[in-house]
Design a protein around this nucleic acid. Structure first.
Lengths: 202, 202, 202, 202
DNA sequence: TATGAATGAGAATTCATTCAT
DNA sequence: TATGAATGAATTCTCATTCAT
């Protein structure tokens, strides 16, 4: 019947969708959330507008997917760090360094996430999904905090709250990392981690 | 024809402009940044679109002014706290509590600021102005940090960097405060301030 | 405060709205229902697309208004005929002649009405409104039928049903009146009315 | 490779084309005329868009074929009724009952036909074809009328005109039969036929 | 023959801005 | 100064049609 190869078709489809999502994140990083038009995304992906709509129902869905993939990815990375064979403080350092790395577009991603949660026009399901994934992603960080408390190297407190503060701080700093006009104050990962560290007695 | 009073005219003008700016912030807090139209602002201010354009050159200028007033205001408040007659840690507490108060629309303001800095369509002058005011506003906080270090109650480090971390943390937390789907983790001002506090010897 | 004349403004507004609605009917008569674009309407009315949207919320609303005005108008006309001082059969003749007059765009209007009622995309309220007005407009015709039955000049039967048949016949014929390729069969008002007439005994 | 059978191939082709046309009518009955997309038709027929284009040149052609088959079919049915061995009035009754049967999608078909004739975008050939078939289909009905006149059971008049009125009435009533908001007036086939009947002397 | 990916023109709608009154 | 009508560019989304596999 069909002279096509369904399996290959499926793979191609998957690949193109990912390509479009990557392009979407890239332009959103430059243009900002809802200011990114489908045109912009299509141009970046070097496909036509129609093609974008061939793969995604709406602009809405693209944003939703970008966020989902990004948060899921981040969650996986953090979980991997949490079970590494190093000191808890070192784990925090890895997370902070990765997130704040100059090359990353995390600042764009963070803004994207918060703007989506804020915007009146974002559908409730998406808001809830974002918040839930964010909350779930706090877990691995919280477990690092607990581990550090047990070892006496991380300050005492509610582990989830501490994780919340840590992540919020990192995200807050990330957003200062926007291009063009960066705040002229250096960031020092050791000093940041130091805030969560139990100081040795002299 | 009523005789004109130039001084009163000027005051009236000032008052209406402020009214429009207040209305603008109010709707932007609900609708999100650039999704707020001039129509929305005019409706909120109960004036016509034409009137808005009498007082402001462009939508651009309104945003710019909202940000300028907001940042200036914030700067004044922080400066006032910095010279209060209380412990440095207490000063930080006051700043944090005020900023994170449930009633505030600081989350909207923070997003507004970051989105503006991020957006390609924001003119460079505005971006620079925002960043400069942000940087300048770090000063009073840095002086609090220095004061605390001198007294041995605040952790050692570069005072401006510490201020940067403190403000970023507060802003990062603020953005978790968006309505509808708040992250289900409590915020505890004492615990937050605790991160910057030198712990007593046991 | 306002150097404008509100009353005059209101009148102008009313006039422009009517002008746009007239233009809308005119183009819909040529292009057909949902095939008429706002562009078409704007061009016909010699205003910009934006202006059309200044006066009407949506294409939907324009169609809805065209139908409402048209049906209301028709209802008024039929009611006026119903109370004229002539024979019942003569009243039917007047209605039929008016409706089938070559110059009228009733055929367009009729199609418009039925297509709207048929289309899946027409909101239920509009469908109900159309149907209700149609039903209400049967009343005057039914009263003519009753009058004729009392006088023995119109065939016996349920007056509302008879009215329904009469109107449906007229509308059915109207739709044959589309331009370009008219059905090559003459219409004779007397013969049509004859169907509802009690034939004299010889 | 299976040996080809040209005759069987042709039959298959014919069968698939008919299947697509049937599906087309089905969806058009629900979605309304030009609001039906090729996608809709393909989905209903459970084939791909490409396949539809294998069998038909354009959307235009599909509509054209649906109408042609529908009108031809109707013509055949009416012609069959015309030569049945029953009273002329009974023949009219059969035609009316069939056409107005609740289950039929004639209302969709009727709208389809009229909208096509009306639309600016319908090519002239199609318009002419529709009108010609419509006109030709009046013949069998006209012959029924003539038969009735000869027998003195159907009112006198031009037989083709009478047929025209009869068919227009039926079509007019059909369009009141749209789903969702039917006009709340009963239809009585006997009463309808009665309009064309010569009344007995008292 | 069958598929569905790709395209681009066109539709509805929004909105910043201008301008006559 | 105040108003709101008018404009047209930009945006999202749809869809007929083409084409490589």
């Amino acid at each position: 019947m069909s002279p096509r190869n369904p399996e290959k078709d499926r793979q191609m489809r998957e690949k193109r969708m990912q390509h479009i999502l990557d392009s979407a994140l890239k332009v959103m990083a430059v243009h900002g959330f809802q200011l990114t038009s489908i045109q912009d995304i299509a141009k970046e992906a070097k496909v036509s507008v129609g093609t974008v709509y061939h793969y995604f129902e709406s602009k809405e869905e693209i944003f939703s997917e970008v966020l989902r993939k990004g948060q899921t990815n981040y969650g996986r990375n953090v979980a991997a760090v949490a079970v590494m064979e190093v000191e808890p403080l070192q784990k925090l350092r890895v997370i902070a360094s990765t997130w704040l790395a100059a090359s990353s577009t995390n600042w764009a991603f963070t803004i994207l996430m918060h703007t989506a949660r804020l915007s009146k026009s974002t559908p409730p399901e998406l808001k809830r999904a974002i918040t839930e994934r964010f909350t779930a992603n706090l877990k691995p960080v919280a477990s690092i905090m607990e581990e550090g408390m047990r070892q006496g190297t991380i300050v005492e407190g509610d582990s989830v709250q501490l994780a919340f503060y840590f992540v919020s701080l990192i995200q807050g700093l990330t957003m200062q990392r926007t291009p063009d006009y960066e705040v002229p104050v250096a960031m020092n990962v050791d000093a940041i981690i130091g805030l969560f560290e139990v100081k040795e007695q002299r």
